[in-house]
Simulated assay, not measured.
Amino acid sequence: MIRFQEPGDPKARAGMLVGGRVVPLNEDINSIIEHWDTTECQLDAIAASAAERTGLAAADVELLAPVEPVQVLQTGANYRKHVIDLAAAHRGQGEDEEEVRAKTAAMMDQRAGQGTPYFFIGLPTAIASATEDLTLPSYSKSHDWELELAAVIGRTAFRVTPEEALEYVFGYTMVNDITTREYVFRKDMPAIGSDWYRAKNAPGFLPTGPLLVPAKFFGDPQDVQVTLKLNGQAMQDESTRDMIFEVAKLVSEASQIMPLRPGDLVLTGSPAGNGQHWGRLLQDGDVMEGTITGLGTQLIRCRDEVQTEGSQP
Results as ranks from 00 to 15, higher is better:
Gly55Leu: 05
Thr131Trp: 12
Glu163Ala: 11
Val213His: 07
Arg13Ser: 09
Ile244Cys: 05
Leu64Glu: 04
Lys141Ile: 00
Pro271Asn: 02
Pro221Gly: 01
Met243Gly: 02
Leu134Phe: 13
Lys229Asp: 12
Val184Asn: 07
Asn30Trp: 03
Pro190Trp: 07
Gly19Ala: 02
Arg303Tyr: 05
Lys141Tyr: 02
Pro69Cys: 06
Asn231Thr: 04
Asp284Pro: 11
Pro69Asp: 12
Ile33Phe: 09
Val22Asn: 12
Asn26Thr: 07
Met108Tyr: 02
Glu167Ile: 01
Glu167Arg: 15
Leu260Gly: 04
Asp44Tyr: 03
Asn26Val: 00
Glu289Asp: 13
Gly115Pro: 01
Gln307Asp: 06
Arg301Val: 10
Gly122Leu: 11
Arg101Ser: 08
Asp242Ala: 00
Thr156Arg: 14
Lys103Asp: 09
Met1Gly: 03
Ala77Pro: 02
Thr156Ser: 13
Arg159Ala: 08
Met174His: 07
Thr156Lys: 14
Thr125Glu: 11
Ser311Glu: 15
Ser49Thr: 13
Gly193Arg: 10
Trp278Asp: 08
Thr54Trp: 07
Pro7Ser: 00
Thr161Ala: 13
Pro207Lys: 06
Phe185Glu: 14
Glu289Lys: 06
Phe245Cys: 02
Pro262Cys: 01
Leu73Met: 10
Gly285Lys: 08
Ala51Cys: 03
Lys187His: 14
Asp284Ala: 03
Val251Ala: 08
Asp60Arg: 08
Phe119Gln: 05
Ala59Phe: 09
Val247Gly: 05
Ala58Ile: 14
Phe245Gly: 01
Glu6Tyr: 00
Leu149Ala: 11
Gly290Lys: 04
Ala234Leu: 08
Ala112Lys: 15
Met288His: 08
Phe185Lys: 14
Ala58Asn: 07
Arg159Gly: 01
Ala47Phe: 04
Lys11Leu: 07
Thr75Pro: 08
Met16Cys: 10
Leu25Lys: 03
Ala77His: 15
Val100Ala: 07
Phe119Pro: 10
Lys11Cys: 00
Ala151Arg: 11
Thr104Asn: 05
Arg21Pro: 04
Gly269Arg: 01
Arg101Met: 01
Leu149Pro: 12
Trp36Gly: 04
Met1Cys: 06
Ala202Met: 15
Ser239Ile: 01
Asp133His: 14
Met174Asn: 04
Leu147Ala: 11
Lys229Ser: 12
Val70Lys: 15
Glu62Thr: 13
Ala14Gln: 03
Glu34Asn: 04
Glu99Trp: 04
Val83Glu: 09
Ala157Ser: 04
Pro117Glu: 00
Trp196Thr: 08
Tyr197Gln: 14
Arg155Leu: 00
Glu95Trp: 05
Lys11Phe: 02
Arg159Trp: 07
Tyr118Ile: 02
Leu166Gly: 05
Leu295Met: 06
Pro271Asp: 02
Asp188Lys: 09
Thr39Val: 07
Gly171Ala: 09
Glu62Val: 08
Met235Glu: 07
Gln110Tyr: 13
Val22Leu: 09
Gln114Leu: 12
Thr173Gln: 13
Leu149Tyr: 10
Gly294Ala: 09
Val224Lys: 10
Gly294Met: 08
Phe218Ala: 12
Tyr183Val: 00
Ala150Tyr: 06
